[in-house]
């Protein structure tokens, strides 16, 4: 479904991605893990069109999307839930969710999806009329994910969805990811919480300073000694 080949992305003179090659097959959950600054977010941003790569290719469903502006990538239903929530603070929860469906015009289906995400996150239902900026951090994170779902993604890219959330809510988020995946959404998941990410993922990539250091199935990586030491905090 998604083939990223030898991607190089720069911020000015800083080379943040030094030749990343990853692949996501239809129906999979693939995770990217790695230390702070390894280039996980940059990889997602390059795929979603927020930054153009200097060289390299990104193929989605057989089409080149490298360097395409973000709104056109979104139109292909490649949806990024950005790091740090990034909800619209002056818009109500409902308006935020509607923004997620900005490119859709199937009114009835949008209403049904709205109902679905509110079912999934009852906390958001209680606050539909409240401004996004007044939600707690965790509630904002739920809103960001729900907003991403409103786009009916083909490929959903989540950047650290569990960040700053209480353990119970993290469970909810991971359950949601699994459910979405079962329902047919392909998922690319960036996580600091490597243990949980590798448990739900079919496959994973470990990034180190802008390149892929390791790859394998979720199970393989969970069993890998280097991964256990560096990312799962075992001694």
């Amino acid at each position: 479904m998604l083939k990223v080949n030898d991607l190089h992305t720069f911020y000015g003179k800083i080379e943040a991605l030094k030749g990343i090659t990853i692949e996501v097959h239809e129906g999979e959950i693939v995770t990217l893990i790695g230390a702070n600054g390894a280039g996980k977010s940059t990889t997602l941003k390059t795929i979603s069109g927020q930054i153009a790569p200097r060289t390299g290719s990104i193929e989605f469903l057989g089409e080149q999307i490298a360097g395409m502006p973000a709104h056109l990538v979104t139109a292909k239903r490649v949806i990024q839930v950005p790091e740090g929530r990034r909800i619209f603070p002056q818009m109500s929860v409902r308006e935020n969710l509607e923004m997620g469906a900005f490119l859709r015009n199937d009114k009835d289906e949008i209403a049904a999806d709205l109902e679905k995400v509110l079912e999934l996150f009852p906390r958001l239902r209680e606050r539909v009329a409240q401004k996004g900026g007044t939600l707690s951090g965790g509630e904002q994170q739920m809103l960001a994910i729900a907003r991403g779902m409103m786009a009916r993604p083909n490929l959903l890219m989540l950047d650290e969805p569990s960040m700053g959330l209480a353990p119970v809510i993290v469970e909810v988020i991971f359950d949601t990811i699994k459910k979405l995946n079962k329902a047919g959404t392909t998922i690319l998941l960036v996580e600091q919480n490597a243990a949980m990410a590798l448990q739900v993922a079919d496959r994973g990539y470990v990034l180190e300073t802008g390149s892929v250091a390791l790859t394998g199935t979720g199970k393989e990586l969970l069993g890998n000694e280097r991964v256990r030491k560096t990312y799962l905090g075992e001694i």
């Binding site: 950005p82 619209f88 818009m91 923004m99 900005f102």
Partner: peptide
């Protein structure tokens, strides 16, 4: 409105 509140994220919405 979306663009004025968060330009980059507005792009991710398809704007």
């Amino acid at each position: 409105r979306a663009t004025s509140q968060d330009r980059d994220t507005a792009g991710l919405m398809g704007i």
